[in-house]
Design a protein around this nucleic acid. Sequence first.
DNA 1: GCCAACGTTGGC
DNA 2: GCCAACGTTGGC
Length: 159
Amino acid sequence: MSHWLLKSEPDVFSFEDLISRPKKTEPWNGVRNYQVRNYMRDEMKVGDLGFFYHSSCPNPGIAGVVRLSSEAKPDPTQFDSKSEYHDPGSKKEDPRWLLVDVTWEATFPKFVSLDDLRSAPELAEMLILRRGNRLSITPVSHAHFTKICAMGGLKKVPK
DNA sequence: GCCAACGTTGGC
DNA sequence: GCCAACGTTGGC
């Protein structure tokens, strides 16, 4: 099983928004980056775990854990001319952009802030902490996943 | 295929 | 609002 970190701007869609959704599940639409699209297509599997990261906000950091609940499938917003994610160059018979469904798994008793991540020496290699990293989904090692779950106050690491 | 211009991301 | 980083676009 692989582990992931998924960024979302809480003004647009927050961890609390996910919890309030039916079945605590949301289609992760709007990815318009080829590298992230390829992660979804080639590497992300049903049952994989991920962190829900709040970005571009006063207190960036990780709010909790999610689980991937679908395989990659076409993102319908690419065909919706009213959507900000509309891509007129994508064809129905050959969709350019994919999404996966994401389901709430666990809420961290203690929010793990970006400062917390930066201050943990064993997390120094995390992609999210590298300058200029702008991918909205990044892989997370099993060791980092376990460490961050502990920092978040989870008694049991989801698996 | 190169690369300058442009747009977006995201922390501060 | 600033700005560094970097992906994308488009002229050639």
